[in-house]
Design a protein around this nucleic acid. Structure first.
Length: 504
DNA sequence: AACGCGATCAACCGCCGAAGT
DNA sequence: CACTTCGGCGGTTGATCGCGT
């Protein structure tokens, strides 16, 4: 217990890592892989404990790290995930490719927490602070205070249901967490999934089952390992709770929207989107997979069973913006559904290069004033020949790296990685496809020595020199490619090494 | 220029559970 | 079954940086 056994050994360095140590560790893992971490420092010639080496690798040296400023999209996703998972940073990080739990934890404690409080939202419960005061009194009578992990509403469909809708009734237009206040009215999003049973997350300490984390799955046998990463039905119940709560900034509706994934912004023209997301057991690789697709490595949660997003254009929404779960059931679960697409273990490449074709249409229904994303059944090729608009959100001015230009419709490439790894973003983007946005190719950054080492490590990994799987490497390769397109990405590394070795 | 302060980040600490012996 | 080892996680701390006074 306590300090790791290896740390008891003498002469072990602590504190910040020097560039030389970094290089040693990087080269060692590049050549041999990490294997047993306890043996790494010895083999690498480092006077560190294995634990420290592991931490350094995971949090800093790993080649697939994205680094750089968190985008607004990422921040909002973190908030969403935290609302469900709580302080399970590793699980949150599993949904944010290229981000470490430490990074996310720091961001939460230093930035997001404060932003939420400024917005009158308790960062622990994700409820309005005004509600908490009320709940304090009620809790004494009714039991424990409402936890963000307890839900009441349970879906009845065998679907993942995502409802995206702007809250026109909200007296206080929702603003993003960032400083940018120019966000369009946010859609609401509700995801239900009773393909796997709804389980009170309070009893589901480990909902997600990220890579190689089998122990987490065991804790909740009701949630298969290939489940979407969490059940979000609580959002529905939670929105109901908050929508009836008292006033005060932010408004109850605002909070409700907040829980409805308000970061999913469809762009200036889109007022609403609606889609249902169906998780099916379709086995075959989807036909929309094409050869010239952009690289995509799905998270392991989707490695086997395919995931379908069913765009259901005609379902009415309730006054709460919630669709009765049963309405999300497709007419036939055996036939290919309009706008559905699958995510298969072999589906590592998506088509994402051309513009929206005629199979996708956006209609504005007079009754609900919501845009319904209609995707006709054209050989199930919703994403075939379809550009995937990233314009889901606007970024704060401080978002230096992953900036979206709403007017120009430009976004940087590394958005793809985080997008393609998150089913919610995938689903949201299906709605967002109404607003065609072109991607922007950023220029190459200056090469640094650190990058060269990283490249070397990739070359090694590519040749199968380690135990790391090819799929893993594929993912890393893609992300690495993106990293090299972000000029600031290794600026810190560059400066550090420049300080250590002189001008490079 | 010096100082204080808050924000950010990297790393450590303590604990837990799984696996091995 | 008890113990040890190890990987992993979340909480916390301390160093550094940037900004304002």
């Amino acid at each position: 217990m306590g300090r790791h056994s290896c740390c008891y050994k003498q002469k072990l360095r602590k504190g910040l890592w020097s560039p030389e140590e970094d290089e040693k560790l990087l080269r060692h893992i590049t050549k041999y892989g990490h294997g047993c971490w306890s043996s790494v420092p010895k083999l690498a010639g480092l006077q560190r404990c294995g634990k420290s080496c592991r931490l350094r690798w995971i949090n800093y040296l790993r080649p697939d790290l994205k680094r750089g400023t968190f985008s607004q999209q990422e921040e909002n996703l973190i908030i969403e995930l935290h609302a469900v998972l709580g302080n399970r940073w590793s699980q949150i990080a599993a949904q944010l490719p290229g981000r470490t739990d430490n990074e996310i934890k720091n961001l939460w404690n230093s930035c997001i927490k404060k932003k939420l409080r400024q917005r009158g939202i308790d960062p622990n419960t994700h409820k309005p602070l005004s509600d908490l005061h009320q709940d304090d009194g009620e809790a004494k009578q009714q039991g424990p205070p409402p936890n963000h992990t307890t839900h009441q509403l349970k879906p009845t469909s065998n679907q993942l249901l995502i409802l995206l809708k702007p809250d026109h009734n909200s007296p206080t237009p929702l603003t993003p967490i960032s400083d940018s206040n120019q966000m369009s009215p946010p859609p609401s999003i509700v995801v239900t999934n009773d393909h796997f049973p709804v389980v009170d997350a309070s009893s589901t300490s480990k909902i997600n089952c990220p890579n190689n984390n089998n122990n987490t799955c065991k804790e909740n046998p009701l949630v298969p390992t290939k489940d979407l990463f969490f059940d979000r039905s609580f959002l529905t119940s939670h929105s109901h709770e908050t929508s009836t709560s008292s006033s005060g900034p932010p408004s109850a509706d605002t909070t409700s929207d907040y829980f409805h994934l308000h970061h999913l912004n469809y762009g200036p023209n889109a007022t609403a989107g609606e889609l249902s997301m169906n998780q099916t057991s379709a086995a075959a690789s989807p036909p929309w997979l094409s050869q010239n697709c952009r690289a995509l490595q799905m998270n392991n949660e989707f490695n086997s069973d395919s995931l379908s997003i069913l765009v259901n254009p005609s379902e009415p929404t309730t006054s709460m913006g919630l669709k009765p779960p049963t309405s999300a059931i497709p007419s036939s679960s055996t036939e290919p559904q309009a706008g559905s697409f699958g995510i298969n273990s072999s589906a590592h490449y998506w088509e994402a290069g051309t513009s929206i074709n005629s199979s996708t249409s956006v209609s504005n229904t007079g009754s609900s004033s919501s845009i319904e994303l209609q995707i006709s059944n054209n050989n199930n090729s919703f994403f075939e020949n379809t550009i995937f608009s990233w314009g889901l959100t606007e970024c704060s001015p401080s978002d230096k790296e992953t900036r979206i230009h709403p007017l120009e419709g430009e976004t940087e490439e590394n958005k793809w990685s985080e997008f393609l790894h998150n089913p919610f973003l995938v689903a949201a983007a299906a709605a967002a496809a109404a607003a065609a946005v072109t991607t922007h190719q950023s220029q190459s950054p200056p090469q640094t020595m650190f990058n060269e080492i990283k490249l070397e490590s990739h070359q090694f990994l590519c040749t199968g020199g380690s135990s790391i799987s090819g799929a893993w490497y594929q993912q890393q390769q893609q992300q690495e490619q993106q990293q090299f397109q972000v000029p600031e990405l290794y600026a810190k590394d560059f400066h550090r090494r420049e300080a250590a070795f002189g001008p490079i």
